[in-house]
Write a protein that binds this DNA or RNA. Structure first.
Lengths: 339, 339
DNA sequence: CTGAAAGCGCTTACAG
DNA sequence: CTGAAAGCGCTTACAG
């Protein structure tokens, strides 16, 4: 604020070269005489010169800023560590590539519409990462129309033109249910959700695993929640009267609710009923007995999303990228059904 | 990308005024003839004009971008909902003021040093919000030296020149311990931490409450943890042999560990030992029995931090602002010690 | 391999 | 109340 900032001009004058040359050194262009490059670098180091990002952005038409958009309808932000882990992955990839991350978190739909227009129109951002949500077709549509490069995290409803990074929800659920079958359970229920594509895919995996292993799919054993702990609790209460011997829960938060219902009913886990879940939050590792879970690579999906966006930014043609990251089954309890 | 962007020039030409006038309308200057202002606004609306932020930034020397810095030493990011709530408050205040938030999350110290210099030097950011941490004096020192306006969240070690927003850790702990005393407990232990100023202040509140109510401070009843669930568990195991009849835990996460230790020991809560805690995370509300907690206004502290930063940015002289937000005691169990 | 020059899209004294 | 003009600090064809 107080002392005058050092500019390209200053460096050029001190090094005895033109501004163009300094600019080229800054941007690692080839075709600079080694001697000149060193001299300029020397001056840059001595003066502590840092290029002015706004100026660069204006001249070059790229800002080295990425945006992360969290629509107003995304609630997970406040419940579990999903959001922090995702951000961790995203920022790590950004830092490694000298990109800056701008965060757009919306609290209302109006805010969302107003701000996104401003953001995209302001040309301050090279590309966007959007956390998935079923409902906001308008936001996605708007981005497509503006031809702003973006990558969605989570599978979109219709794939056609959208690049996305998702975890293998179908495969993850499949492996969990398959595991329950293999250790001897037969009346396997599920607490599912229709809230988003992840929930839908997890239900698909449940169904597929049963079918593939010669088990009938009983619709009475499929109950729906909304990702909240409370909804898991209520769903489990419903299920208890239907005597499942195992339950695959579509999310850890709901699983905690389900466990509460089970414990209140004075039922033994895993002898009377086994529990498996999707997410692998720290909390589920600490329950007693510990819950077997499907671990999704949250942090990694953030990193991959950024890399995918870079890939798009650097290529001229834009065929949509569809990336599915594998999950991992974490078996915590040695719950073998007693015969 | 495809269609040419609409600039100030375009708007000026269409509206039949100079670029200066359009600029003045955009920035809500006074002294514009009502008729002219309307005409320009009309054209802006029709063309969907959005000012180019980099250009504005370059010309005006303010970017309308705020930075949130999370040092590499801050771990809370990944454990509880503190970080999401804080971000929620910060983004809400930013959105309301047409500011954009950039997020700087560091994973290593090298990254931190390298990036912060780049950020501050790049002149892309008007001011910063720093999440507190005891250890990174270097980062703070660097910012002070650069004369970049910033607000710290959490009390810094030495106050002198630093503006900060903190919750009333001393008062909050005080009220919790006072409550335990008033409902009849006498051997009140604490699981404290020296990790940061918040932990220190909470211990201070504990001590003060005891002293003010004629209770002796017994150092045998003060055990230290490091904010982790495991450390709370271990601390409680130590405490159990010393027969406290109540424990005030310095954080909810540690309280969950402490509860685990109590339950493993087969001891009744709150009859044999009562539990109170600081933070008020969702998880503590769901334990059985529910834990009495001190609720800190996390989201609000984010909002206030942003507002404080605006205040600093707008004023010429910079006396440091010190803001302490009140906490709230949430009594969940009617734990009266049996006589 | 290097430089002169135009230009990116805005703001802001200055003058009237 | 409004405009002409300079300037913010970079990048990038173009020419040599």
């Amino acid at each position: 604020m107080s002392m005058k900032r050092i500019t390209l001009d200053d460096v050029a004058r001190i090094a005895g070269v033109s501004r163009a040359t300094v600019s080229r050194v800054m941007n690692d262009h080839i075709n600079i005489r080694e001697e000149v490059r060193n001299r300029v670098k020397q001056v840059i180091a001595e003066t502590g010169y840092h290029p002015h990002l706004a100026a660069r952005s204006l001249a070059s038409n790229r800002s080295n800023i990425l945006g992360l958009v969290v629509p107003s309808t995304v609630q997970i932000v406040f419940t579990d560590p999903y959001f922090p882990l995702l951000i961790q992955g995203i920022t790590q990839a950004c830092n490694a590539n000298h990109y800056t991350l701008s965060l757009f978190l919306f609290h209302t739909v109006e805010e969302e519409h107003y701000a996104i227009e401003r953001i995209v129109g302001a040309g301050l951002i090279d590309g966007l990462i959007i956390t998935a949500d079923t409902k906001d077709e308008t936001l996605i549509a708007h981005l497509l129309e503006q031809e702003k490069p973006f990558v969605q995290i989570g599978r979109p409803q219709k794939l056609d033109r959208i690049s996305f990074v998702d975890v293998d929800n179908v495969g993850g659920s499949y492996s969990a249910v398959k595991h329950l079958i293999e250790i001897g359970y037969h009346r396997i229920a599920t607490i599912a959700t229709r809230k988003n594509t992840a929930g839908q895919d997890r239900l698909t995996g449940y169904r597929q695993a049963l079918t593939d292993h010669g088990e009938a799919v009983d619709n009475n054993l499929i109950v729906f929640g909304d990702y909240s702990e409370e909804s898991g609790y209520l769903a489990m209460k419903q299920l208890l009267s239907r005597n499942p011997d195992a339950v695959f829960v579509g999310s850890d938060t709901m699983a905690l609710g389900a466990l509460r219902a089970i414990q209140e009913a004075g039922i033994s886990v895993p002898n009377d009923v086994a529990l498996a879940s999707f997410d692998d939050l720290p909390a589920t590792a600490r329950t007693n007995p510990p819950i077997t879970t499907v671990r999704q690579p949250i942090k990694r999906s953030g990193m991959v999303a950024v890399e995918t966006l870079f890939d798009i930014l650097q290529s001229d043609i834009h065929p949509p990228r569809h990336i599915i990251l594998p999950t991992e089954l974490i078996v915590r309890s040695s719950s073998i059904k007693r015969r």
